[in-house]
Design a protein around this nucleic acid. Structure first.
Lengths: 208, 208
DNA sequence: ATGATTATGATAGTTGAACTATCATAATTT
DNA sequence: AAATTATGATAGTTCAACTATCATAATCAT
């Protein structure tokens, strides 16, 4: 690869990284292209050369935001134990990840909300969808194993179960963050308590 | 009430109604104050006299959007049957409501996302929170009854359970809508199937 | 090495939408 | 019917995304 090409790649990565960082804290409405250019240490005209539409940058940041979830899920593919134990481990891990990275979960929700309202699909959204799909597919064999080895109910549908797990656990960012802004309940429930309840609910509902 | 006052009230309600309708289909980014003024048949300057900030109108629309959920939930307060049966009925009803009103669910998510990112709390957000709280409080006695009459597990926490139910069922709009735009999975899961799985999961996880 | 090519960033300009100001006219009130 | 208040058209301001231009700097090809 030529030096020019390499610089370009590095710069794109830097831009996406800074954009993600800024979006995570502030959402995409509040962050201006100027802010991102400043954070990446480049001129705004240069930023626009790389990402002619803010939307493209938002999608790129959303994909980057999703990547770690896929990577960590994949690490659980070859764990030992029966399916129930492995699912428990993965849920526990997911649980901790959501707690650590509440901003990431919130960002994901904001992005999906945003994406769902556009008239024409966002440019590059297929990449995002694809990572989503890969995440789901990581869980599928686990559920199948569980049905086979008898640790899960045999009447559950694999795909539906996977989607339920991801949706239930995944869409928790807003709630946590909203509650930190403005509390839903007089005596607030800790995110940790809430997530634990979700985990237990999921496990209880599919175990044989 | 003077005629002036009355016209004012009616007009405010009309504006909120039209704003909600437009936001539901298009999100708040896409809809301009001009569009709302046109829909309500008034001048944009007049619209700004009633709602000097678009944010205020967004909040008003969000509150209006949440109201029917509360009203319908309240209807279930005095039903017959044991707690399990009543919860099943209410979940079934919630389930159908979410299916009928996917746009409402999506709007709610978009709003909460939006609200969670603002620097200073949205003007009027307390009203919204309050309706949320009332919805939760409607379910609390039901869970308590169930613990008492033995149809629910005795070790569940009332508030946590209520929040879990609302969150799990409530944050389903994006997923449905996103999937209608861009499908997550090759062979798509019907929203109805997905919601039924959620309902069963919830019931299975708290029944004694 | 050096001339050709391409990338950069500063600057100025365009566009679109939220929001403000003004004011003549119309609807209420007294 | 005179005084008060509400309306909506119009023009203007501001701010951020986006475009255009261009002098300068970095890379590349020979």
């Amino acid at each position: 690869m030529s030096k020019r090409q390499q610089n370009k790649e590095e710069r794109i990565q830097l831009i996406i990284q800074e954009a993600e960082r800024l979006f995570l804290e502030n959402g995409f409405e509040k962050i201006q292209m100027q802010d991102i250019a400043d954070a990446a240490g480049i001129g705004v005209a240069t930023l626009f050369r790389y990402f002619p539409k803010k939307d493209q940058l938002i999608v790129a940041a959303a994909v980057k935001n999703l990547q770690p979830t896929l990577e960590r899920f994949e690490q659980f593919l070859n764990e030992k134990g029966n399916a129930y134990e492995r699912l428990e481990a993965i849920l526990h891990h997911f649980f901790e990840m959501q707690l650590e990275r509440t901003n990431h979960a919130r960002f994901r929700e904001a992005f999906e909300s945003y994406a769902s309202f556009v008239a024409t699909p966002l440019p590059g959204i297929e990449t995002y969808i694809d990572v989503q799909r890969q995440i789901m597919q990581t869980l599928e064999p686990l559920i199948e194993d569980g049905k086979r080895d008898g640790s899960f109910r045999s009447d559950i549908d694999v795909k539906v179960t996977v989607v339920t797990i991801i949706n239930t656990f995944g869409t928790f960012g807003n709630n946590i963050m909203l509650k930190s802004h403005i509390s839903y309940l007089e005596d607030d429930i800790e995110p940790e308590v809430q997530l634990r309840a979700l985990k237990e609910m999921l496990l209880a509902s599919i175990q044989a």
